[in-house]
């Protein structure tokens, strides 16, 4: 197959775009697509200082690489979750994130959950008895809290995540099958900072296929963690991704069409009745925005877990601002 731009040997054929490209043209094309999304959804500008949440995976490292190539001021945040999974998943992902940042002279902030708060994510899940035996729910809660905290306290204009089109469409399908109006109303490429203490959130890869990001990482020579999180195996998200790929196989472009039609329908007001903003206020303890009355879920979760571990239950004020190591 030949590259549509230069006629050289193609390395990727994107049936959804009816476009095959060689390595060089692909490395130029993908950042252009990301830039288009950043502009179209008014995510941030080159004057902004953004924080990229990195996991050592292809999406977040690929995104950080693209943002740096596009000239954005982008620092990274790695959150160490303490997941082993038989092969040192967290250790590997941290090492890859550090190596990536070090090789490019990019600034990486690191927060280790166990060192900062007293337990690893798998431990936290067992002790708190949340999530029906899976740590994904407490993991999400902790990551959201820490990402928001570091972005806000560090003076970043936006917190940027590597959610790709497949991630977005899997969530969209799940929410559509459940007619979860509130969640559908809040799913968007950008979430504004609607109250003090809340960071603006943006997903510049929301229109980029997961396959395109994997191809970018390989062609660009980015060393990333190939294994998925051991706790994600058998998850609902992966199941929906599989179903959507079956659809894509028969109808190239179906995933992108589903997502873009959803955004259009939302723009036209289809979910406006469900679009009420959750009532947020400051947690009485840590000051972070929360919908829970009194103290936020994060503070209450850690109280419970630290009590079981024999640690002081009231998190000291210093620990509410996680210890952040910064490299270089």
């Amino acid at each position: 197959m030949k590259c549509r731009k230069c006629g050289g040997a193609a390395v990727i054929n994107m049936r959804q775009h009816k476009l095959a490209l060689c390595a060089e043209d692909y490395l130029a094309w993908l950042p252009e697509q990301v830039q288009r999304s950043i502009e179209k959804y008014e995510m941030f500008s080159p004057a902004d200082k953004v924080l990229v949440a990195v996991s050592g995976g292809k999406d977040s490292l690929g995104l950080w690489d693209i943002l740096a190539r596009l000239g954005y001021q982008a620092d990274g945040l790695y959150i160490g979750l303490g997941i082993h999974g038989g092969f040192g998943y967290s250790d590997q992902s941290r090492a890859l994130s550090q190596a990536f940042a070090g090789a490019r002279g990019l600034k990486l902030h690191i927060v280790e959950v166990e060192a900062a708060y007293g337990a690893t994510i798998p431990e936290l899940a067992v002790i708190s008895n949340r999530g029906h035996g899976r740590p994904c729910s407490v993991c999400g809660l902790n990551k959201r809290y820490i990402m928001n905290r570091v972005a806000h306290d560090g003076g970043y204009t936006a917190l940027v995540t590597g959610h790709n089109l497949d991630d977005e469409v899997a969530v969209l399908m799940q929410n559509t099958l459940n007619w979860a109006g509130g969640y559908l109303a809040r799913q968007a490429p950008v979430l504004a900072a609607t109250r003090p203490g809340l960071a603006r959130k943006a997903k510049p890869l929301c229109r980029i296929y997961e396959r395109e990001m994997a191809a970018y990482a390989i062609v660009r020579g980015i060393d990333y963690i190939y294994d998925e999180c051991p706790h994600a195996v058998g998850s609902t998200t992966l199941y929906y991704k599989e179903l959507l790929n079956q659809l894509e196989e028969k109808r190239p472009g179906a995933k992108l069409q589903f997502y873009l039609s959803f955004l259009q329908a939302k723009e036209a007001g289809l979910f406006s009745a469900a679009a009420s903003e959750p009532d947020l206020h400051a947690c009485q303890r840590c000051g972070q925005p929360t919908t829970a009355p009194g103290e936020c879920s994060f503070c209450r979760l850690w109280d419970k877990v630290r009590a079981v571990k024999g640690l002081p239950t009231r998190l000291p004020a210093s620990m509410l601002q996680p210890h952040v190591e910064t490299e270089p």
Binding site: S55, S60, Y78, I79, G80, R211, A214
Partner: peptide, 10 residues
Amino acid sequence: LVAVISGGAG
């Protein structure tokens, strides 16, 4: 063959 689907972070 490189799997392109992933889930999870760090």
